[in-house]
């Protein structure tokens, strides 16, 4: 499926999502990297040893969920834009999801945007909590959105514009 459509299925995702127990302990990374390509910036970007050392540059990243503190530094260093950070403890009804977003216009904090799934289809409108676009991110801005807990495994992208109300 992934190899013919570019869309990972539930089984693919189950393999990379942190266990529910870890989600309950605060922000943590989700790395949707399924293919052994030569690439290791996630490992070199991490200051906390949250991604284990690569034996081979084509290894898939192995996450040490205890060491990862969800700092978000690796997100804008991933050439594949395959990383996001989930903060399940953000609110009782919402997770805070931080994703890379390289399109103009950038959303504004507080703005409502369309929340898209991995096929680019609208799941639900979501509110933007934070927009980070620092120099060290090198043109890969980070957008944090509040996602209802029922949908957090489905969302992976946003569309800006035409969504200025909650409905």
């Amino acid at each position: 499926m992934l190899k013919t459509t570019g869309v990972p299925n539930d089984q693919d995702l189950d393999g990379v999502f942190p266990p529910q127990e870890r989600l309950g302990k605060g922000p943590v990374v989700v790395v949707e990297c399924f293919e052994t390509i030569p690439c290791n910036p996630c490992y070199t970007a991490c200051h906390f040893g949250g991604i284990e050392a690569f034996k081979d540059i084509t290894d898939l990243p192995t996450i040490d969920f205890e060491k990862c503190n969800g700092c978000t530094l690796c997100i804008s260093n991933c050439p594949g834009l395959a990383i996001m950070v989930i903060d399940y403890q953000y609110h009782k009804d919402y997770v805070k999801m931080t994703i890379p977003y390289e399109f103009f216009p950038l959303p504004k904090e507080g703005e409502w945007v369309k929340g898209l799934d991995r096929r680019g289809e609208v799941v639900i409108n979501v509110q933007v909590i934070l927009v980070k676009n620092a120099k060290h991110q090198d043109k890969t801005p980070l957008i944090s959105i509040a996602v209802p807990k029922a949908h957090f495994k489905k969302l992976r992208n946003i569309e800006v514009g035409d969504s200025n109300d909650q409905s």
Partner: peptide, 24 residues
């Protein structure tokens, strides 16, 4: 081809912007 030839991370980021990929 029956499968995507490029890196799947590239395919996924385009797909989640709503662009369909037709292999075959």
């Amino acid at each position: 081809s029956s499968e995507i030839g490029g890196y799947l991370v590239h395919a996924s980021k385009i797909r989640r912007s709503g662009v369909p990929i037709f292999t075959g």
